[in-house]
Amino acid sequence: MQVDIASFTPWSALLGGVLIGLAAALLYLGIGRIAGVSGIFGKLVCDQEANSGWRFAFLIGLILSAPLWNALVAETPPAFRLHLDNPQSWAIFCVAGLAVGFGSRMANGCTSGHGICGLARFSRRSLVAVLGFMTGGVWSVYLVRHLLGD
């Protein structure tokens, strides 16, 4: 194992994490809901569940964060800018979307629902889910980057 010091950003990561935690806390305290993005998205678009106005509002806020961020922090150091690189083919994004959509429904949560909210309330199911995310992720990155890649 070799730590990539050049791209290691502990402070912006920690601060960003704190913001994510605050967002989850706000939703929980304010309206008694769990900030799990795949659940919110799935129940709104896929299940078309009743009383989903708050889900729609949450997703609109999430989507609008990018233009807001770009407008507010255009002059900041590169580390704080919105990074979106594009290292893969379209087929990868399609397969990944299918796997993430199917998997998040099957496991009842994603990186925000299980990884943040679930772990924050010490759920055993969420701990297992996060270990599953990491295991699947580490193996597939190894496959893509080291076995299939250069």
Partner: peptide, 22 residues
């Protein structure tokens, strides 16, 4: 089993693309 299989599948999609729902 669905929790374990689903989260592994999620992890594979997350790993190959680097993208998750949020």
């Amino acid at each position: 089993t669905p929790l374990i299989v689903g989260s592994l599948l999620f992890g594979v999609g997350w790993g190959i693309s680097g993208i998750c729902p949020g």
